[in-house]
Amino acid sequence: MSQKILDKKNRWRSLNVGFRMSPEEAKELNDRVKLCGMQKQDYLIQSALYQQITVRGHKAMYDEFRKHLQHIEKELIRIEKASEMEEELLTPLRTILEIISEVNKL
């Protein structure tokens, strides 16, 4: 019998949960995970169970913020009307604003 591998909180995570997503949903999920600086497993568990994400700021997170905000800035300069704005620009912007809002509560 193999030894159980416990997580940081001494829990044995023996179940595998899977689901299907569209390529667009998967991209949005991956963008959100990167912006939050968490492992995807922890992000999904916390999001599904608590519907709130706790953010721990670090350099990689701020680098992701900068990259997305620079892209958004370029698009905002390019567009002439709000109707021309692509939906995929709004997801990272919404996530960044949610994170900043939570940090301001601390």
Rank of each mutant, 00 (worst) to 15 (best):
M1K: 07
K4G: 00
I5D: 11
I5A: 14
L6V: 15
K8I: 06
K8C: 00
K9Y: 01
R11T: 08
R11K: 12
R13H: 04
R13S: 04
S14V: 01
S14P: 00
S14F: 00
L15E: 00
V17W: 08
F19R: 10
F19I: 11
F19Y: 14
R20I: 11
E25R: 12
E25G: 06
E25V: 03
K27M: 02
K27E: 09
K27C: 07
K27S: 10
K27G: 06
K27A: 10
E28N: 15
E28R: 15
N30R: 15
N30C: 11
L35F: 04
C36W: 00
C36F: 02
M38C: 02
Q39C: 04
K40M: 02
Q41M: 02
Q41H: 05
D42G: 07
D42R: 11
Y43A: 07
Y43I: 08
Y43K: 09
Q46D: 09
Q46E: 13
S47Y: 03
S47H: 01
A48Q: 03
L49K: 12
L49W: 02
Q51M: 06
Q51E: 12
Q52D: 09
T54W: 08
T54F: 08
V55L: 14
V55D: 01
R56K: 14
A60P: 01
M61P: 00
D63K: 12
F65I: 03
R66S: 11
R66D: 07
K67F: 09
H68M: 05
L69G: 02
H71S: 13
I72V: 15
E73M: 08
K74S: 06
K74V: 04
I79T: 14
E80V: 05
S83N: 13
E84N: 15
E84I: 13
E86F: 07
E88A: 10
L89Q: 10
P92H: 00
T95A: 09
T95Y: 03
I96V: 13
L97C: 15
L97V: 13
I99D: 01
I99C: 08
I99E: 04
S101W: 09
E102I: 14
L106F: 05
L106T: 08
